[in-house]
Design a protein around this nucleic acid. Structure first.
Lengths: 213, 213
DNA sequence: TCTGTCACATACACAATGTATGTCCTATGC
DNA sequence: GCATAGGACATACATTGTGTATGTGACAGA
């Protein structure tokens, strides 16, 4: 190979190896956590997948929860980026919200994402801390979308927190269900959730005046 | 100890003592699980609360999960009974649903119920098994309410499973939030959730002129 | 080539669950 | 009454998994 110095600063040989094992650990942990859950996964097994020992894990991560958090944040960060990109393509706040919703549901059809972020997340962190983590991620994103809708008068001015939590709860349900569903049933389920969530959210439009769109 | 007056007919002295410790274990476990969570509670501590040892626990329950399940089912069974009683007072399916919702939200203001059933439940059982347990309890109850509404033409005939999961998801969010909320904020929050959930559910009423996009 | 340090491996301490066994007390048959 | 069986626990032990402390070999810099 060539002198591929892709990193900003010189990536010394040792650093490269180190980052490679770290990435491998993340990949192995992702698979294990998705398949066996957080509690059901022993760090020993993750290390063995890499042909390493738990020492490697504890060198790179403070503890089991920190490892899970790294996995979690990587997945959720990517998903959020995709949703945000989709939302940006919307011409108005409503279209933005629906585009984001569509991408989100699509993302949840990946069982790894759905299981880790929506099922195992609250288990690993505990619900309150999971919600706290989400405030900076999906939850916060939803809140901003809803806030935009309210500010522009396209959504009835309801208590923002409560509205956000309810929408979040619906997405939660959708995500978990899609993550658990058998592969062939997913497309059908996805459109069902898309429609129904849309209907419910539309109930909060100022004056439903159905004659006009 | 004095010669206690024999209570019910066939309760031998040993059985009485046994049932008393079992009940005490349930009470102690309920408190511990609610305060420290499932994972954060050691069986040793529960036993110590009763001035007993873990042997007593393992005599009455198969394992830690079974103990939690007993606590869980006791709470959820009572809550469900109250909701069902409220629903029975409704004159039509819609009123029944709203009365049940009101009682449910009130019940969630008890942090013990909210924490154990809605927060710790999925943690202790794992989400899929938690949902499976709920199929016979709150989840199943909601499904019957919605099914009634659809059968009588008071709710648009939407996919029942999907609708149920979404409503369940909203109740989930409401329950968790109320369980976590500081005491003085609860009444206000409760009315907010009552209103908003009502609004969203009403979006599924058959509309004379449905708006389409 | 020497040395310090980084990336791990090894070894150990500890906490918690679950199981196997022991013990006392109560109910019951004679 | 007494002997015996079984139930309600307590005690002791095995196992598993996390987290920490210490050791070691390779790589970078001098």
């Amino acid at each position: 190979m060539s002198y591929a110095v892709s990193m900003s600063t010189v990536a010394s040989r040792r650093e490269q190896y180190s980052q490679a094992t770290r990435a491998a650990l993340l990949a192995a942990a992702t698979r294990r956590f998705a398949e066996q859950g957080f509690a059901g996964t022993a760090l020993e097994d993750i290390a063995a997948d890499i042909q390493a020992t738990r020492g490697a894990i504890y060198h790179h991560f403070a503890n089991k929860t920190a490892l899970f958090q790294a996995v979690f944040e990587e997945l959720e960060h990517d998903a959020l980026e995709q949703s945000a990109a989709a939302a940006a393509r919307g011409k108005d706040p409503w279209e933005a919200a629906f585009l984001a919703l569509d991408v989100f549901l699509e993302r949840c059809c990946d069982p790894v994402y759905g299981k880790i972020v929506w099922q195992e997340g609250p288990i690993a962190f505990g619900w309150p801390q999971w919600l706290a983590a989400e405030e900076a991620l999906a939850y916060g994103f939803i809140q901003r979308l809803l806030s935009d809708l309210m500010e522009t008068g396209q959504l009835e001015r309801q208590p923002l927190q409560t509205t956000t939590r309810l929408v979040f709860g619906m997405l939660n349900a959708a995500g978990m269900t899609l993550a658990d569903a058998p592969e062939p049933a997913k497309p059908q389920l996805k459109t069902e959730y898309l429609t129904m969530i849309g209907r419910m959210a539309s109930a909060l439009r100022p004056q439903p005046s159905p004659a006009f769109e």
